[in-house]
Simulated assay, not measured.
Amino acid sequence: MKLTLYILLLLVSNFLTAQTATKEQIISDLPEIEITEGINLHIISPEPIQYVDLSTEKLTGDLPATNIARIKITDHPNSDEKGKINTPSVFFNGNNIGIITVVAQSFIAQYKVVYRNQDNLNMITNIHIQPEAMQPVEFDKMTFSNLELRKFAMDIIQKKSEKNPIREEKNLKLSFQLNNVYVISDYIFLDMTMKNNSNLSYDIEDLKFSLEDKKIHKATNNQSVDLKPILQLNPQKHFRKNFRNIYVFKKFTYPNSKVMMIRLIEEQLSGRTIEMKVNYSEILKADTF
């Protein structure tokens, strides 16, 4: 009930966002961040960053990770290999040297960059984008960000797994279960559990999802289509006894002549591999949140 109410409020919020223009920003209202030569400033986003705009050539940067923007003052022509200026700075203390705009999946955040001289020993080297700095970006009301999908997956994994899983395969003292399938909007969530009944721990090399023909005729090749989850809740690759995880996919369909094949592959030459076939009818019976 709590989860259903949360989703309802989220959908209403998304709908209202799509109907309302983003609030205008003026430079004087932007939060300030300080920067100096020879220091990299890391801006950390709670969502994957789509792009970063630097308003002047005085600033340069890159994206070393999907949710981190790395910004610095553009190297002066007379700087050494470490970026240290060998001539007096071209900036004055307190100068506004540009605007940083960070666009994520569901928000935009902007900062006014202020120069501080190198004598300041208390320079901040990283900041986390705070909710008060975020402005919602208009987007399709039925599209969810990775942050929202992760929240849904967390809510699923906090539930007790089904006593009678939809599918279960056993081999080599391994048990591989599809506990349940959930759907919200155009997203499919697979709740899966792996159990190891041996004393030998299991190292996951890969968990492959694909669509394959139910029947393979000698005269034809098997038509296989790989499916890639857009998110998995836990990236863990090693477990001793039990491991439960949630895998999220964009909506997919397949005919009755095909099955979804899930292969759990161990990271060993003589690895223990276990396969599971899931019929489309079982996907169509997915629970809603």
Rank of each mutant, 00 (worst) to 15 (best):
D213L: 14
I274T: 04
N179Y: 05
N40C: 09
S175M: 03
S28T: 15
E81T: 10
K218N: 10
L231M: 14
I188W: 06
S224L: 11
Q19P: 01
N93K: 10
A18N: 07
K214R: 11
N95Q: 12
A104S: 09
F91P: 00
I262S: 00
H128E: 07
V183G: 09
K23W: 00
I100Q: 04
L207Y: 02
E24W: 01
N222A: 11
L190T: 05
L5E: 11
A21C: 13
M192K: 01
Q19V: 07
K84N: 15
F15D: 14
Y182F: 15
P64K: 06
D62L: 15
Q130K: 07
P131E: 13
I124S: 08
S145M: 08
I157N: 10
I230Y: 06
E37L: 04
R240T: 15
L233S: 02
E138M: 12
I73D: 03
D203L: 09
K215L: 14
S161D: 14
N146R: 06
S281G: 08
V103Q: 04
Q110L: 07
K214I: 08
T101Y: 07
F189D: 07
I127N: 00
K214V: 11
P64S: 01
G83T: 09
K84C: 10
P229T: 06
I97A: 00
S145Q: 08
L54C: 05
E275D: 11
K277N: 09
T87M: 15
E148W: 08
E266G: 02
N234Q: 06
Q232M: 05
I85V: 08
Q223F: 08
